[in-house]
Simulated scan of single mutants.
Amino acid sequence: MVSPRISSTVLALLSLLLLLVALGSDHWLVDDTVLGSPHEGLWKSCLNSVCEQISSASVSLKVTRVFTLLGVIAGLVSSFALFASFLRSHPGSVSLTLVSFLGSFSAGLCAMIALAVYTGEFAGAVNAAQSQVTFGWSFGLGWASFLLFLITGVVMLVAHQSS
Rank of each mutant, 00 (worst) to 15 (best):
A128Y: 13
A116F: 10
A114L: 02
A116E: 07
G140C: 09
E121M: 10
G103K: 13
L98V: 15
F80N: 02
F146W: 01
A129N: 03
A144S: 15
W137L: 09
V99R: 00
G142W: 02
S100I: 03
A129I: 07
L102H: 07
G108E: 03
Y118R: 03
S85D: 14
P91L: 03
L147D: 00
P91M: 05
S106Q: 04
V133P: 09
W137G: 08
S93E: 11
S100V: 05
A123F: 11
R88D: 06
C110I: 01
A111P: 14
A116Y: 02
F80K: 06
V77E: 00
F122H: 05
L109S: 08
G153S: 02
A123T: 08
C110P: 03
L109I: 08
S95D: 13
T97M: 05
S100D: 12
T134A: 12
T97F: 02
T97W: 02
L150Y: 10
L148E: 00
L98W: 10
V117K: 00
A107K: 03
F83E: 04
R88C: 12
L147H: 00
E121H: 14
C110Q: 04
I113T: 06
L82P: 01
T134D: 12
V154T: 10
A84W: 12
L87T: 01
G136I: 03
F83G: 15
V126A: 15
S106P: 01
G108A: 08
V77N: 00
G140I: 05
S78H: 06
G124R: 14
A114Y: 03
F105E: 07
P91W: 02
F86I: 13
V94F: 15
S95F: 07
L109F: 09
A129E: 03
A84H: 07
V133C: 05
G103T: 07
A123D: 06
L115G: 09
V94E: 00
S78P: 07
S79Y: 00
F135G: 06
E121C: 08
F105C: 07
F149V: 03
E121K: 09
A81I: 01
G108T: 06
L102R: 10
L96V: 11
L82S: 11
G136S: 08
F86K: 04
T97I: 04
F105W: 12
A116M: 12
F135Q: 05
F146C: 13
G140M: 11
E121D: 14
W143Q: 10
L102Y: 10
G108F: 05
W137V: 14
A111V: 10
G108K: 09
F83L: 15
L82R: 06
L98T: 01
F86H: 12
Y118V: 07
G108L: 06
S100H: 10
S95P: 08
G142E: 06
F101K: 06
L148N: 00
T119Y: 15
G124V: 11
W143M: 02
T152P: 01
G108R: 06
F83P: 11
L102E: 05
S93W: 11
F139P: 00
S131W: 13
S79V: 12
F139Q: 05
A125M: 10
S93A: 07
S145E: 09
V126Q: 00
S106E: 00
